[in-house]
Design a protein around this nucleic acid. Structure first.
Lengths: 196, 196
DNA sequence: TTAATAAGTCAACCACCGTTGACTCCGTCG
DNA sequence: CGACGGAGTCAACGGTGGTTGACTTATTAA
């Protein structure tokens, strides 16, 4: 076994560089927009090398998805969760995963990977943490709201969610997300199980 | 002037047929997925004719956007608004516009048209109807939630929002949307102005 | 009836981009 | 030192799909 040796001409190192470049690209453009040639150029390599490292564009994208799984979702507590999602451009890795997610939503090639990703890595773990009745529904609504807000704010850049001037909308967003989770501390316990 | 005469070989009639076919296609697939050749085949015409009728794919898409403007948004009352958005596959025209919207979110060619559409036809009219403080923010959040739910349910088809079995999630969705609008009848008046 | 205009058709062009295969060069092993 | 294997390079292939132009056909005006 002669692995991690050379330093130069290491397949593994190249693969990592390509992956990093791919993550950056996919976070800023859609699946179709991202060209393998651009990714290769980012790391001063040839397209064919990208291909040999990951097999195909699909498989590279799958690797990107796998590498940007939102670990915060299953570890952070509820307030941190809301705050992280609501804050714009916060927690780069987390947001990068979200950006990749929404930017490739409509790509047929990426859709199946995203469906599995969304369900397995977003909704289900969150539902498990939430517990209570309709946990999966509430988790799904949380994710849905998160994605919706991110789309209007980061993709379409709709004014009311971008301008910090006209009243800070952070509290509104946090309240919205909290209402999905059933957090009564926000006074928006719409979905929380009725407690006596 | 010899307009609207022939019945056969009418440019206007052809344009309408093409537009209808395009709307149907764009509602079911993304901008890139939709091929002009398919649209032409739907109405038994040649691709070149589609091109001559609308100039380019971009312009055809713009016409589609313009033709599917959600008139309900500015006419219906609040409950109808929530119900319409929450109901799956309801109000075909309305939902068709929403489908077109989300299916082409990530297309660079469609993005500017969609940004204007979202702001001018969705958020601003709704904000005008809502009134009160942070009306535009609340309107934007309503639209964001709507889009998020539609994406998870209609595009990704995430289980918890699709299965009718595991507890009907209609009330949850309606509650979520109502909370954006600041409807205190839902007991979720998070965003409503504090009243004394 | 015939000429002219516009609708409709056919076929090709062109750019783009993922993909592939042959080739070169570096580093290690025998 | 020489040979082998894998990293890196180059150029081309092939399909797709928007776009274009020349041609054909039908409708209407003269």
């Amino acid at each position: 076994m002669r692995e991690e040796k050379t330093g130069k001409r290491s397949a593994e190192a190249t693969k990592q560089k390509v992956l990093a470049a791919a993550i950056s690209r996919f976070a800023r453009a859609s699946y179709e927009e991202v060209r393998l040639r651009d990714i290769a150029a980012d790391v001063r390599l040839d397209v064919a090398l990208v291909h040999r490292a990951f097999g195909s564009k699909d498989q590279l994208f799958a690797a990107v998805i796998a590498a940007t799984s939102p670990s915060e979702l299953v570890t952070a507590d509820r307030e941190a969760l809301c705050a992280a999602f609501a804050r714009r451009n916060s927690t780069p890795c987390q947001n990068e995963g979200l950006q990749i997610f929404i930017r490739s939503l409509t790509s047929p090639l990426a859709r199946s990977a995203l469906r599995a990703h969304c369900s397995r890595d977003f909704v289900e773990p969150l539902a498990a943490r939430l517990g209570g009745p309709a946990a999966r529904q509430r988790a799904a609504l949380f994710v849905a709201s998160t994605i919706g807000v991110a789309i209007l704010r980061d993709i379409l850049e709709i004014d009311p969610l971008c301008e910090p001037a006209e009243g800070d909308c952070q509290p509104l967003i946090e309240g919205l997300l909290a209402s999905c989770l059933g957090d009564d501390r926000q006074g928006a316990d719409v979905f929380a199980p009725p407690r006596d």
